[in-house]
Design a protein around this nucleic acid. Structure first.
Lengths: 177, 177
DNA sequence: CAATATTAGTTGCTTATACAACTATATTTA
DNA sequence: TAAATATAGTTGTATAAGCAACTAATATTG
């Protein structure tokens, strides 16, 4: 694989937004999300949380809300309300889980499946045009790098990387300003 | 540069969220954003839009709201309200632009600069630990790939890639469901 | 096995966001 | 240059998000 550019990572003490990963990722993800939700949103009336719930159910089969929370990384209240809307719309069913009477097994209805199968090719086609900018190898590398980044991020959160500075909880010097 | 993995991009007709770029990017960016805003948010009382405005002003010097909108890709109403809050807090100044009486030149105050300079090393240190998972070359490649993706995305939006399906504006089959 | 703690999911409430409408100024064009 | 358009920024408003409190069921533990 060829080297892509001459940019180097030096130990910076200045912040250049153009090469600040959180900034780049955030803008990119945001733009992509807006574009994509133009498909399942405008044309199929799904919000982002609704679409994600459907996609996860389609992929994994029956799930309860907590599992969706885990898979999709969404707030449980967000999931709860989105599930309610989808149920009202007849796109999924809820059934009290026999093994745990607190949990509800969620599954797509026929209508939900149908909707999902209508959306998938549209969404994949859009992704394809997006990826047309990349070589096959580049796409593979990108997935690899993002996954690696995700793993590192997970590590950081699990092992809190102690002492990030000095401010205590409740110590808000700015509050006075 | 070595090949990272054996994953291949086939023409898919099924959606696997684990390798669906919008999904991956969104989750990653979201997690990073939450982590990062734990620094400038919890400890310095800045919201995401506020922090972005400050960072852009610090980097580019005086800007008006529209320029910030362009640089940061934020809604103008979001920028407007965040600017108001920052001004009240004494972190930036507004001055009617002499060349265009509609526009206001925005600039960091001393306090704004100071706050920014307190945050930057924290934020860079955090980014550094995040990037510790990557080789230098991998980081470079990642930036390159994301930038390439961004360019392609921009292209798609400029040239609307006509006829994305068939639904007309106002044609919402789902609305009946 | 009773008391305590944990977990699944819902709901209330405050704040943030997005979109459109609006004011004021600038630019274009007929 | 008057009229029509476009642009900078603000504000109103409906909806969404995020957090905490809550109910009900399940696990843990002394």
């Amino acid at each position: 694989m060829k080297e892509y550019s001459e940019a180097t990572r030096t130990v910076r003490s200045e912040l250049r937004l153009q090469s600040f990963l959180p900034y780049i990722l955030s803008k990119l993800a945001d733009t992509i999300s807006v574009e994509l939700s133009g498909i399942y949103g405008d044309e199929y009336g799904l919000s982002v949380p609704e679409w994600r719930i459907i996609a996860n159910l389609a992929q994994h089969g029956t799930l309860n809300a907590r599992q969706i929370v885990d898979f999709a990384g969404m707030e449980k209240s967000k999931v709860s309300r989105a599930v309610k809307r989808l149920t009202v719309r007849g796109l999924l069913t809820q059934q009290r889980a026999s093994v745990d009477n607190r949990a509800k097994d969620l599954a797509l209805t026929g209508a939900g499946e149908t909707l999902y199968r209508a959306i998938v090719p549209r969404v994949l086609a859009w992704e394809k045009t997006l990826l047309e900018g990349l070589e096959v190898g580049e796409y593979r590398d990108l997935l690899y790098l993002l996954e690696k980044l995700g793993r590192q991020l997970h590590l950081l959160n699990v092992a809190p990387a102690q002492e990030w500075g000095g401010a205590e909880p409740g110590d808000k010097p700015w509050a006075a300003a």
